[in-house]
Design a protein around this nucleic acid. Structure first.
Length: 437
DNA sequence: CTATGTAAACAAC
DNA sequence: GTTGTTTACATAG
């Protein structure tokens, strides 16, 4: 497909066909068909992060993805991945009970996790947890350091010359590593047990399973029904169809865990907004969620079992709900998320994308902005482990140093990614920057 | 004591 | 009836 063909779009019938495929070729996970239906019927082209309109977002990857160098030369990409950020950033405070999703973690990270410095699930052992964040020492002093940055080329997905597949939990839009069926290549690494029990997510808490479900979805969001379906198809928790307890538990976890947030999206004006559950940027960045109990703060008065959540301020909306409009009515509109206002930006017409960036062999001036425009944000599956969001452009948001929501459910990336993408101070070749990693 | 699961009350739709 | 929030209690470690 000619990427400059801004007017073309996916054939909806083909999209529907694709979405009925039933098997996520990348994640190996079963498709929540309700999600398919809802996307088919409810999502406007504006919403669809994978249509041609939004392909510009997709193709607008940070420069190093287009530089022509082998992708594994870019350890910073890994640093931009949610897992790695998760490993090195613990803004909510690392704890022995913080989860780093083992299944979700690239094997090279798992190799590091297999270090005796870490617990069996990849969690940082408590002896490394100190007030000065010295839990990072578990990695910083590790002989696995290089492994943290090495990324086998064959695990990176090449940038397509055509827009990516339409969105569907069955499509390639799903996180490339979000729920990968343990492939032979991986299992032979000896880093995945291959235990069928593990493949069925047995004995994992609800919060982790929900995380996996959301991680497997495009933009890390699913409807409640989709989550139910994912549990039915990927876990053993829903074996008894007449037993509603597991659904109650799912809802309980969604409500109680700050790693999940409800998003109401008015994808079709005039119609009822769709309720999604989404991973918060913190959860995405940390590569996992933290324990639900963690957020059950409150008094220990009375029965000794306090409120399970942080008490809500009087004027604060008690729920985690976020209202989102559709793309058309959100362009340049203000949204307030996490207490700050940001202005979302319009996408440039496809023709604005320099050809070199749509080529496999671009000659890229890394430091030259490609668009005279504000930040471009989007939802992409480009990076293994990041099927969520990215941002690009010389004009960063006000909170340069942290993830922030811009709207449409898209978030700016980690500071690491920002630095590389903007190239403000760093070397053109990220490799040159590795000695201080 | 923490983490988690489960049940249930309740409100909103 | 479904969805989401919250409280309460039980259990395991």
């Amino acid at each position: 497909m000619d990427p400059s063909d801004h007017s073309s779009n996916f054939n909806s019938a083909q999209m529907a066909t694709d979405q009925r495929e039933g098997s996520d070729t990348l994640s190996g996970q079963t498709v929540p068909s309700a999600s398919v239906a809802s996307y088919q019927t409810n999502l406007s082209p504006h919403y669809n992060p994978c249509n041609v309109d939004n392909w510009s977002r997709y193709i607008s990857q940070p420069f190093y993805m287009h530089s022509g160098l082998p992708s594994h030369y870019y350890p910073q990409i890994m640093g931009a991945e949610s897992y790695n950020i998760g490993l090195f950033h613990q803004p909510l405070g690392a704890s022995p009970h913080s989860y780093i999703d083992h299944q979700d973690t690239p094997f090279h990270i798992r190799a590091a996790m297999d270090s005796p410095d870490l617990g069996p699930g990849g969690e940082v052992k408590s002896e490394y947890l100190h007030d000065d964040n010295s839990d990072w020492r578990a990695f910083g002093s590790s002989s696995h350091k290089e492994e943290l940055y090495y990324h086998p080329p064959n695990t990176l997905h090449s940038i397509p010359h055509a827009p990516p597949s339409p969105p569907s939990t069955a499509s390639s839009y799903a996180s490339p590593d979000s729920g990968p069926a343990p492939s032979p290549a991986r299992t032979t690494q000896g880093l995945i047990s291959g235990d069928p029990k593990e493949e069925r997510n047995a004995n994992l808490p609800y919060s982790i399973l929900i995380y996996r479900a959301l991680k497997s979805a495009e933009c890390n969001k699913l409807t409640l029904q989709d989550i139910y379906r994912w549990f039915e198809e990927n876990t053993d928790k829903a074996k008894d169809p007449n037993h509603k307890g597991w659904q109650n538990s799912i809802r309980h976890n969604l409500s109680m865990n700050a790693g999940f947030e409800a998003v109401k999206e008015d994808v079709c004006p005039g119609k009822k907004p769709i309720n999604f559950w989404r991973l918060t940027p913190e959860a995405i960045q940390e590569g996992g969620i933290q324990s639900t109990t963690r957020y059950r703060k409150g008094s220990t008065k009375g029965t000794g079992r306090g409120s399970q959540r942080e008490p809500t301020e009087p004027n604060e909306h008690p729920s985690k709900k976020i209202m989102m409009g559709n793309a058309s009515n959100h362009a340049n509109s203000r949204v307030e998320i996490y207490g700050q206002d940001y202005v979302s930006s319009e996408l440039p017409p496809m023709g604005y994308i320099p050809q070199s960036f749509a080529s496999n062999h671009p000659t890229v001036n890394h430091l030259v902005p490609r668009f005279s425009m504000g930040p471009v944000t989007g939802c992409t599956a480009q990076f293994p482990g990041n099927n969520s969001v990215f941002i690009e452009g010389p004009e960063m948001g006000p909170d340069y140093g942290s993830t922030y929501a811009i709207g449409q459910g898209w978030y700016a990336p980690s500071p690491v990614l920002n630095d590389r993408a903007v190239g403000s101070n760093g070397p053109a070749d990220p490799m040159l920057d590795r000695k201080d990693q």
